[in-house]
Amino acid sequence: MLTLYQFPISHYCEKIRWALDYKQLDYRAINLLPGLHTRQARKLVGSTSLPILLHDGKAIQNSSDILDYLDQQFPDSPLAPEEAGLRGQVLAWEKFADEEIGVPVRMACYHVLLDYPEVVIPLFTDNGPWYGPLMMKIIFPKLRQKMRAMMKINERTVRIAHKRLEKAVDKVWVRLQNREFLVGDHFSRADLATAALLAPLCWPQKYGLNWPRNFPERLETIAAPYREKLAWVDGLYDQYR
């Protein structure tokens, strides 16, 4: 049995949800509460970051390592080509997405969302334990401070994150001119990772989270300039998610 320990809001966890669904694998998702997840995560792998995949008594952490494992254990619907040159390109694009898209998106979004507990608490507790909403309201002031410190979110770092994000989106945009996929002629983990990590800027319905009806205007302002260039993300979600 495959078990995914995750935060529903996390775009790195979405990488794994998407991969599991793409491979049509049965799995159980266990939604943990931010801040309160640390005990369970340390018990499984000795550190606190999610996602964590549990399979046959083996715990795998880190979204890229989990994708490696899934292709090794469940080779149907592979997420990377066998040909070495193409595989290298796919993994390079995934690493680029993890570092230059996933991190800036997380910083930019949380910089806004952590100021709106009425919006972010339901996202943190979506389909989680019954006591989640009440507990999160109690711990949220300290959790907000801890998250800002842990992710080094402040006005200066967020300005840098926006510049990195803009540059990264442009790089993907240029790459996709006259192309359907980032590498080769088939959907791969390069496309999956890039689309999943950009998804918090376009909120696709198949993401696996109950998005709020309305987002803070500040977040809408961040996302708006990217809408045209992120149409590719919506297309991948419609066809491959």
Rank of each mutant, 00 (worst) to 15 (best):
L143M: 14
V174R: 15
S47T: 15
Q73A: 10
K15R: 14
S77E: 04
P104S: 15
F96M: 11
W130T: 10
D21Y: 01
D170C: 05
Y22D: 03
K15L: 06
M107R: 15
L114F: 11
S49G: 00
R213V: 07
A223C: 14
R179I: 11
I138S: 01
L113H: 09
A193E: 02
R144I: 13
Q61D: 03
V119W: 03
K95A: 13
R218H: 02
P8I: 13
D56E: 15
R218D: 09
W18P: 00
Y5S: 05
T125E: 03
Y207F: 15
D170T: 14
L50P: 04
N127W: 11
H186C: 10
T3N: 00
C202Y: 05
Q205S: 14
A161F: 11
V119A: 03
Q61P: 04
R28W: 00
R42Q: 14
M136K: 06
F96L: 12
D21F: 00
H162S: 02
L20Y: 07
G35I: 05
V158G: 05
K58Y: 05
D191R: 12
G184I: 14
Q177D: 09
L236Q: 06
A223R: 12
R164E: 12
L32E: 07
Y116D: 01
P8E: 14
A108F: 03
Q40P: 02
N31K: 08
R87T: 12
Y116Q: 05
L198W: 04
M136Q: 10
R179L: 02
M107E: 07
G85R: 11
H11F: 01
P212G: 13
A29Y: 08
W232A: 09
N31I: 12
D238C: 05
R144G: 01
W93A: 05
A80Q: 07
L32T: 07
V158R: 12
P216M: 13
K152I: 03
Q61W: 02
P225V: 14
L192Y: 04
C109V: 13
K152S: 11
K152G: 01
P81T: 00
Y237T: 10
E99L: 14
W93L: 07
I9V: 15
K142Q: 12
K137I: 14
I30W: 01
D65W: 08
I121K: 04
M147C: 06
N210D: 11
C13T: 07
W211Q: 04
I121L: 13
D115H: 13
E94N: 03
P78Y: 11
Y240P: 00
D238K: 13
K152A: 12
A29S: 13
L36Y: 05
R189Q: 10
E155C: 05
V183A: 09
R156W: 11
G102M: 11
Q177R: 14
E166W: 03
E228Y: 08
V158D: 06
H186I: 09
L44G: 04
W93Y: 10
L79I: 10
P117A: 12
E94V: 12
L4T: 05
F74N: 07
K206R: 13
